[in-house]
């Protein structure tokens, strides 16, 4: 079983960290993982994306043309990935910032108002966690507990005070229909 996930949005939205957290959790669960960022002469406010592959088998190519899952945090990312998701795949849309609606009927689409969810919980910057929660509710590649444990294991001391809030937003995203 191999799942490829692209997470894309603006720099500063926590796109790269969300991907790393998935990779950490996959590794902690004993799976093979790769995480590869788009890197370029980019800065906060520019576009950022990363590809995460979580697999029971050794992973060949760390990049994919058609991901199983695309998590799009802003409009340009929606436009870029809406037609690239593999048939049968999942498109997770941050409907706080994306106004378009997916016209495809061969993929599953979910609209999560991630900014709102995170803001209501107390910190809009945690919108990435809301989407990760929503992802795990729809693709149980890892359990919510595994992801939470990886937060505990890999979040640095300077961010430790945000741990509980991170978990809360994850859970809100997980329960979001």
């Amino acid at each position: 079983m191999e799942t490829s996930i692209i997470i894309a949005g603006f720099g500063g939205q926590g796109v790269l960290f969300a991907g790393q957290l998935l990779a950490y959790a996959g590794m902690d669960a004993g799976k093979n993982v790769t995480w590869i960022p788009s890197y370029g002469p980019e800065m906060r406010g520019g576009t950022a994306n990363c590809t995460v592959i979580i697999s029971d088998q050794p992973i060949g190519a760390p990049i994919v043309a058609q991901p199983d899952v695309a998590v799009v945090l802003n409009q340009p990312s929606f436009d870029k990935y809406v037609n690239l998701v593999k048939p049968g795949g999942l498109l997770l849309v941050n409907s706080s910032l994306v106004t378009s609606v997916c016209g495809r009927d061969d993929i599953q689409t979910a609209y999560i108002a991630a900014n709102t969810l995170a803001e209501e919980a107390g910190n809009v910057k945690l919108l990435n966690m809301a989407l990760l929660g929503a992802l795990l509710a729809r693709r149980p590649i890892l359990t919510l507990e595994q992801l939470e444990q990886s937060l505990v294991n890999h979040v640095g001391a300077s961010k430790a005070h945000l741990l509980e809030l991170n978990k809360q937003v994850l859970q809100r995203g997980y329960s979001c229909q």
Binding site: A23, M27, V33, T34, W35, I36, Y39
Partner: peptide
Amino acid sequence: DGAIGQMMEP
């Protein structure tokens, strides 16, 4: 290549 330099793996 740059991909292996930038990629994270266990």
